[in-house]
Amino acid sequence: MKSPSRITTLFVDIGGVLLSDGWNHESRMEAAATFDLDAQELENRHHQAFDTYESGRLSLEAYLEQVVFHQRRAFTPDQFMRFMFGRSRPIPGMIELIRGLKARYALKVVAVSNEGRELNAHRIRTFKLDGFVDAFISSCFVHLRKPDPEIFRLALDIAQVPAPHVLYLENTPMFITIAEGLGIQSLRHADYDSTCRNLASVGLNPDETLP
């Protein structure tokens, strides 16, 4: 691994690192139970449409028309959207951790995430992510999705930082492998405590006292 003193920029995933996943399998199964939907049909339709939604080529309304409202329902799209938005939760300690590292080490912070536009906007606004993230390389904005290496190349171009000066926090091993193949140092996030230890090992100590 490169010298930790060279790290000037953090790339961070949103779902799984800062926040819970925006619309994962567990949330869909909970939606099926809450709204009395056929869980298998919901899952099948989701997988047929969600990549297009996350790539910014389908609105949330159009996604729901294909996945849920292809037949008459006893509830409205607005009710279902509110349920979807309500699944997002902050991962304990992680937002505060990244805020603190940014301030302590004068880091640039760039979010690199696969998220649909409406969910992304809700999560940025609700959890005030724009208060410490300098740029959002969201799949819905750039029409690229991880694991496509181009989304990381684009993030490097927009951040205007060489790959060896970046540390990437991610919870998905495949995406870490892609980033490391481009020369981006990466740490797999599993939980707050282990991430703090791993960050300290590369010179970004959350508990370091400022001079």
Rank of each mutant, 00 (worst) to 15 (best):
L97I: 10
S88T: 10
I95K: 07
R89S: 14
M94K: 07
N114Y: 02
L58P: 01
D78E: 12
E115C: 04
D134H: 10
R104C: 08
I124K: 14
G56F: 02
V142Q: 14
Y63C: 04
R82A: 14
V133D: 03
L64M: 14
D134A: 09
R57G: 02
G86Y: 01
Y53T: 01
F75C: 05
N120S: 15
S113C: 10
H143G: 04
I91A: 14
F80P: 00
P77K: 07
K108A: 07
D51C: 04
D130T: 08
L101P: 00
Q48V: 13
Y53P: 02
R87G: 04
L58T: 01
K102V: 09
E54W: 00
P90I: 06
L60M: 12
P77Q: 06
F75D: 05
F83M: 01
Y105T: 01
R117A: 15
Q79I: 01
H70K: 12
R87V: 06
I95F: 07
L64A: 04
F69E: 05
A121R: 12
I95A: 09
L97E: 00
G100P: 02
F75K: 04
F75Y: 12
F136V: 03
S139A: 03
M81V: 06
F69P: 09
A111K: 08
G100T: 04
A106C: 10
A135G: 04
I124F: 11
L60R: 08
G93L: 14
S113R: 02
A49M: 11
N114V: 05
K108P: 00
Q48F: 11
E61V: 05
K102M: 06
G56T: 00
L64T: 01
I98S: 02
P92F: 11
D51H: 13
A106R: 08
G116D: 05
R57C: 07
H70I: 01
S113F: 07
L60A: 06
F127N: 10
Y53I: 06
V68D: 02
